[in-house]
Each structure stands twice: as C-alpha cells, then as structure tokens.
Design a protein around this nucleic acid. Structure first.
Lengths: 254, 254
DNA sequence: AAACAGTGTTCCATTATATGATACGATATA
DNA sequence: TATATCGTATCATATAATGGAACACTGTTT
C-alpha cells in the first residue's frame, strides 16, 4: 500500500526544518527536499496556517512553529518512567556533578526523554527528543542487552557499524561480545565511542515484570569520568540507583 | 489560496491525537475528525510510516509517535530566554517553594516554555507546550501589557471572555482597567481566574530594547499563595528576578 | 537609469493522486 | 451459527495537487 504523497512530502519538510532552528529559505529548502518551489510553497502555506511552521517576515526564513511543542506536551509527562525516575536522577546528578540522561529505545535507536544538567561548564551537549545510535552508546547497549532475541538479531543485523571515533566498536563479533559483557556486569560503558572524549556509564531500569524498559546514564569528559572513578564510585552508584528507580516501578527482583 | 487538503486533514489528526496520550481507535477518531475510515486509515498509515503516529497492536489504538519529540528537540533549547532564565527560575522556585513557569505569547495565547516544579504535593498541573488564554492568566496579562497598541486592540477584540471560575474577569471594560493596573504596578495577578483555587503572580522579562518578550510566574493554591504573602514577599521578589533575568538579556532600563 | 540576477509567490492545464463507498477479514458476542 | 462491529483493502472516479512558467519584488552591477 502506498502512502499519501503530499503528506509524506510535508513530513519530510518538517523533519528537515527541525535541523534548522533559525530557519531556512525556500530556494535552499526546495533543493534539500527535492520539491519544486511552487509545490513547496503550497505545502509550507498549509503548515503555516496551522502553526506547524512560521515564516520570519524579515529574513524570509521558514522554521518550525510552536504547534509541534503543543503536540508534544503530553508525550512524556504521562510517562511513569520520566516522572518516577526524575527525582532519583536529579539526586544522582547532584551527587556526581555530571550530566545524567534517561533514554528509551524507539525504532532501533535511543531517544533522550529526560536530561539533568550538571553545573560543570564542560558538559555533554544533548537535547530531549534527540536520537542516537544504539551500537556506540552506553544506554543503547543496555537497552539491547535486555531485548528479546528475535528483535535483538533483527536490529543488530540492520546496524551499520560506522566508526564515529577511533574507539567505536565496528566489528559485529566484537559488539556481540560487548553485549554479553554488559549482560554479565549489569552496566555498560561508552568509551568515547559515540563522541570523542565523552565517557558514559549506563544502567538499566526494569519494570514490574523485570523487563528493561529504559536506561539512564552519567556522561562527562574522560578527564573527569576516568576508569578509576568509574570502578571506585560510579558502578556501585549506578547499581544502587538502578534498583531504587526500578523498585519504584514495581520491580521485585534483585 | 487554498490549502493542501490531505495535509490539512493529517495535521488535524495529529492535533486530535495530542488530546489522547493513551491512544484512540480508528472508528472513534474518524467520528471526531469527520473523515471516512478509509481516508483516515490511509493518512494514519502514512503518519505511522514516518513515526509521527504509532499503533498499539494490542488495543488497535493510535497515538502520537516520538518523531514529534524529535522535531521539538531544538524548539526551545536554542532559545536565549529559556537558557538564561532557567537558573534564576530554579532559584526562585527553591526560595518560595512553589511552581514557577516561563511563558511567551503565540497566536493570541500563552504557551508554557519552561516549568520548575516545587516539592509540594499540591501543585499546579501544567505541561511545557501547553497553551492557556491570555485574558485570565497572570502571564497573559503581563504579555498583553507590553504589546503594541494595534496588536493589543486586535487581540482583545478577538477574545471571548468565557468565565472559567467565579472570579474570571468577563467584562472587556474591566479587563482593560486590569491591564492599566498591570502596567502601573509592574506585575499581574491571577486571582483564581483561570482555575479555581489557583493563585498566580507574574512579572515581565524585557529584552535589550526594553520590549516584554516573556513572562514568568509563581503559582500555588490560595491557602499558600495568599494576598499577605504576595504583598509582603512575592511582589518584591518578582521585581528582583524580573530585573535580574532581563539584565542578562541585555536590558538596561530600570 | 537600465539591465540583470535571484528570490518568493501565483497561476493554470494536466494528470496522477486521494477519495468515498463498498467489500473483505478478523474478532467478539448472543 | 448468525450477527455486529471493528480495522483494513480495493477501485472507479472526481478532483486535488502538481510542475513549469510567469510574475512581482529586491538587490546588485553596469
């Protein structure tokens, strides 16, 4: 069954506009989405009439409208995970003074659903709503480690192990070993695999059935989040918070 | 010039779905948006293929997908207002232990662009992205008070002064007097006008040109946020924070 | 001042797309 | 077994959406 072409085009436009928070002009946008200016103009006019897009009259740039924010107002706030985890993650961030994230899996990627910033001036740049690959993030490895085998196999088969940094794992065999390691040790590390210099340690959040439904992480530059700090402090702390958050979601295991 | 019909329909579907965080079934949604099930199904399939909508296979309910969150990731984070105001609003919330909001005007309504929760168990229920009327909210009155006369007249003319509570101002004349009062005193009150029991006090945030670009507020139930507390403590505090935040946005006035 | 270049916007003949009505498949209930 | 209701698929047809071209506007160059 085919899709509705003009709707597909419009959603492609919205996706592209999300890359340009300061807006983009019609001719350039037309090039990027492969539509004639007439068609693009008509689609933008419709999006604008419903506040999905706004046009800056001074610069002729189009950008996303606040209706997108309005749509998203209930997307996370009804989520048990965000609500229950937040106070714990705030406390954790305060204790370690690093940025803490909460992530779930969506369509084979991790998506950031909460973020607690530290007070450090050098910190991980991230956005609620942003997505990242699973194969080179600590939270991604945690989420994969709790996945049902069929889905796990299907996803890993679809991964392109593109090197992001010199330390990215790009061998499927090595990656599968890493996931076994994560399963046995109960936490995962991102050894600057996704972004240079940036270390992360992640742990699982279980639901009442013992299923991994989310993951949270501590992130910081590798001069602060060192292997020593990880081994002496962070592993124990992540285990403690993993259990505390999971308990509040009805988890009864150990 | 007319809009693109199928796109308009799809955006209407997205708007309606945002009211059902737990999802809605096709037949019911078809009734609500006035589309045949065939047309609706085709549009939903397209939305789903691009992750704007997901279908819960167990309940046959459709709901918004996380692509909406992905779109919104840059909507506020690039905003100077949110970034600069946040540490001040966190401090304010901590000092008064009530919920604090940051709002802007968008298309004749206020929209919540940040929220700092207090630790109280009884607190205002609100969502980033949510919208509220301008005529019965403290932040709305602040934003109106700084508006250019033409736009002000146009907006106020369009208001329907629907009573939300027994204390809602529903007379246009009385409302105009209220706005004059806000201008002279430099803060606005919502005397449980939008929601019963809920008191709010709001103050302006100025940009470098002295224009009111946002408003922030303290909200709490009227047994905690009393007229005494407002007069003895909150007015002075709001003035102080209004100036502090505005200074950081380049404001040089008094 | 005139010519040129590039942008955003509008128009219209054409055709490909989206539609509504209907049928089908699945599930639950009597 | 028959019926009711839901979600999904199909298809003939009408119309909506399209691409290309023209137009209006603005800025730059000669």
């Amino acid at each position: 069954m085919s899709n509705v072409q003009s709707l597909e085009r419009a959603l492609t436009i919205l996706n592209k506009l999300s890359e340009y928070p300061d807006g983009i002009q019609i001719t350039r946008l037309s090039e990027q989405v492969g539509l004639t200016k007439g068609t693009l103009h008509r689609l933008l006019a419709t999006l604008a009439s419903m506040n999905y897009v706004v046009k800056d009259e001074e610069t002729d740039k189009y950008k996303l409208g606040l209706q997108v924010l309005f749509l998203s107002r209930n997307l996370l706030n009804n989520s048990n995970i965000v609500t229950i985890a937040k106070p714990f993650l705030e406390k954790l961030s305060q204790e370690v003074n690093e940025t803490v994230h909460l992530c779930i899996e969506d369509r084979g990627e991790v998506i950031y659903i909460d973020k607690i910033e530290s007070t450090q001036t050098i910190r991980m740049y991230s956005r609620i709503g942003s997505r990242a690959p699973m194969y080179c993030t600590a939270v991604g490895k945690i989420l994969l480690s709790g996945m049902e085998q069929n889905k796990f196999d299907e996803l890993v088969s679809s991964f392109e192990f593109i090197p992001k940094t010199p330390t990215t794992i790009i061998s499927k065999e090595e990656f599968l070993q890493e996931i076994e390691r994560v399963k046995s040790q109960g936490y995962a590390l991102d050894n600057a695999e996704n972004e240079a210099v940036l270390m992360c340690i992640a742990a699982p959040i279980y639901d009442h059935k013992g299923k991994i439904i989310a993951s949270f992480s501590i992130s910081g530059p590798n001069n602060r989040v060192t292997i020593d700090v990880i081994n002496s402090t962070l592993i124990e702390k992540m285990n403690q918070y993993s259990l505390a958050i999971s308990r509040n979601l009805g988890y009864t295991g150990s």
